[in-house]
Amino acid sequence: MSEPILRLEGVETRIGPYHILHGVSFDVPAGELTLLLGRNGAGKTTTLRTIMGLWRASAGRVLFDGRDITALPTPDIARAGLAYVPESMAVFSDLTVRENMVLAARSGPLDSARLDWIFGLFPALRRFWQSRAGVLSGGQKQMLAIARGLAEPRRLLLVDEPTKGLAPAMVRNMVEAFRQVKAAGETILLVEQNFHAASALGDDVAVMDNGTVVHSGPMRALAADAALQQSLLGLSLDQHQ
């Protein structure tokens, strides 16, 4: 296993009167795709938002490449090399696809070679390059949201439920796109509810329940163990063919 680029150590997060994360600990190895799985309400999105500093950890540490980023402001965390694609997609509907991508390239002009690579992942973005993002379908908006995260090289990409609500054909396209992103050496922490997509993509997995990590290990081991899937997630792969 590669050295972790991200490590969470006993992270706790409170939002108002609610104690959401209860000592979350796991590693994200560099150059791999790590999955964060769990039932609805387990704390997965809160974990991503805490990593990005959008919600502040009340205890524990978030280490990025050995550096403690727990208390850093979100812009500084982004500048350190993290990109976050929220479940809401957060594209600018009144701006064109091109304008969305230009805004995402914070360090300077869009690199043409990298843009060609992104178009290879998501060909629809080339077709709609000068169109307002608001006219895109839900799946195309999701493609744009992920493309924004890839607009310039990042050391870690956090993605929250990229296949949620997508038609099966679009899910297959998304899985293939993430395969190519993995092959390019990108490091990804992915929250995903589609277990088939998760099992096709994941190198490592951390399973959350009630605000803590209850299982971690290779994704292939979880994918091969229907009883463990049932115990941890309330499902088995065989039930979701």
Rank of each mutant, 00 (worst) to 15 (best):
N173G: 15
K182Y: 03
R106P: 05
Q130W: 12
G134T: 12
M101P: 01
P153E: 07
R132V: 04
L157I: 13
M174N: 07
L158P: 02
A169D: 11
A113W: 05
W129S: 05
L150D: 12
T163W: 10
I188C: 13
A147V: 08
I188R: 02
Q140I: 03
R172W: 13
S107A: 05
D160E: 05
L136V: 03
G149H: 01
A104Q: 05
V181L: 08
Q180R: 09
V159N: 02
L125H: 11
K141G: 02
D111L: 04
V191I: 13
L144D: 06
A169Y: 14
L157V: 01
Q142P: 05
Q142M: 01
G165S: 03
R106A: 15
Q130G: 14
L144E: 10
G138V: 10
K182V: 00
A169V: 15
L121G: 11
A104Y: 13
T163Y: 07
L156S: 08
S137T: 14
L158I: 07
R127I: 15
R154E: 14
E186I: 06
W117E: 04
V102K: 10
M174V: 04
T187Y: 02
W129V: 00
P153K: 08
L144N: 06
P162S: 07
Q130R: 14
L110F: 10
V135W: 12
A133M: 02
F128S: 05
I188S: 06
N100D: 01
F119R: 07
A124L: 14
A167Y: 05
L166M: 04
A177I: 07
M170Y: 06
L115S: 01
Q140A: 13
V181M: 11
L166S: 04
G138A: 01
S107Y: 06
R155D: 14
L103V: 05
L157Y: 15
W129C: 11
S137C: 15
L144Y: 07
Q142N: 01
T187N: 03
A147P: 02
A113D: 15
T187I: 02
I118Y: 01
P123F: 00
E99Q: 14
F119M: 12
L156M: 12
P109S: 13
D111K: 07
F128I: 13
K182M: 08
P109W: 04
R154M: 15
Q130A: 10
E161D: 06
F128W: 09
R179N: 15
